[in-house]
Amino acid sequence: MAPNMASESVKVVVRCRPLNEREKAMNCNMVISIDSSHCQCFIEKPGATEEPPKQFTFDGTYYISHSTEQIYNEIAYPLVEGVTEGYNGTIFAYGQTGSGKSFTMQGVLDPPSQRGIIPRAFEHIFETIQCAENTKFLVRASYLEIYKEEIRDLLGKETKQKMELKEHPERGVYVRDLSMHTVHSVGECERIMDQGWRNRSVGYTLMNKDSSRSHSIFTIHLEICSTDALLREYQEEIKKL
């Protein structure tokens, strides 16, 4: 997670999931323990009772009992808040198939505490827009997939069409002709996210029968403009006339 602010930094956070049904059927044992107060993760070697566990320290550690709501409030909230102030921010979920990336990022409706980081970010952004004074916002969204080293627009008219990666001296790296969709509410954001999710490439694996088999990037583009600045610009144009 990396906010592009004055105090720019990258934070690495670990979340431990419970054993799944396949692992329980195989009589697997939990080998990970977490000390959240010190942001430490311990991994024990099965059968090596005299060997001390390997210890790792991160910027945040979350165990089975922790909810996505808590993770959002402690880790993602400051980053999304920075986005509403005009900074760039990225939340990157990394892990093997079945490790819980989709559960953390998209989440589930019930219980509400496990709603994902992405829908929570939608609510955060539109709550900020509703409370803002003398400011106009333009919110647009895009959704792409990288599968077998090919880029596809999950919200485009031709979702199977291969997209090109380009670089611009001012814009930086971007995907040519990637569709952008203007959204006005949380509901519209959730609708296009669901639409793109259904267009992803999936396949069966031992760990996950509906594995996405790809990487995806959901981007919210937020343009902010002060109405006072617009008024001054309009007044200057009137003077010229």
Rank of each mutant, 00 (worst) to 15 (best):
Y234D: 07
G156Y: 01
G172F: 06
C28P: 00
H124Q: 10
T227E: 15
P52K: 01
Q114L: 15
E164R: 02
T182M: 13
A229K: 13
F58E: 06
E190R: 04
F92V: 11
F92I: 13
Y204P: 02
N29T: 14
G196Q: 02
L230P: 06
V83M: 03
R191N: 08
I125F: 00
L154V: 11
E190S: 13
D35A: 11
V83A: 04
S142E: 08
G82S: 15
E167D: 11
M207H: 09
H181V: 08
L79N: 09
G116D: 05
R171D: 11
E233I: 14
E149H: 03
R22Y: 07
S102G: 12
K148W: 07
Y147Q: 02
S226H: 06
E23F: 03
T205C: 06
M163R: 04
R120I: 13
L231V: 04
E51S: 10
Y234G: 02
V80M: 04
E81H: 07
A76M: 07
I224E: 04
A6F: 09
I217N: 08
Y63A: 13
T135R: 08
R191I: 15
V12G: 05
I34H: 00
D59K: 01
R200N: 08
R198L: 14
V175I: 15
L206K: 14
E44H: 06
V175T: 10
T104M: 12
F56L: 12
E123P: 02
A229R: 10
R152T: 03
L178K: 02
V108E: 06
C131P: 04
Q114W: 10
L144H: 04
K24P: 00
D194M: 15
I91P: 00
S33T: 15
I151G: 09
Q55N: 11
V13I: 15
Y234V: 07
S214W: 09
T49V: 15
Q195A: 14
E149C: 05
G47N: 07
R213M: 15
S33W: 04
H168W: 07
D177T: 10
D153H: 03
N199D: 09
M26V: 12
K101C: 06
I217G: 00
H215A: 11
E85V: 09
F122G: 02
A93L: 10
H215I: 05
G60N: 02
H66M: 14
C16S: 05
G187I: 01
E145H: 01
P53E: 05
S211F: 01
L222P: 00
S36L: 10
I238V: 13
P111W: 06
Y94K: 06
R152V: 03
K148V: 12
K101H: 03
C225Q: 14
L231E: 14
K136D: 12
T219Y: 01
M5A: 10
E23T: 12
M1V: 13
F103H: 06
A6T: 13
I224A: 05
A6E: 14
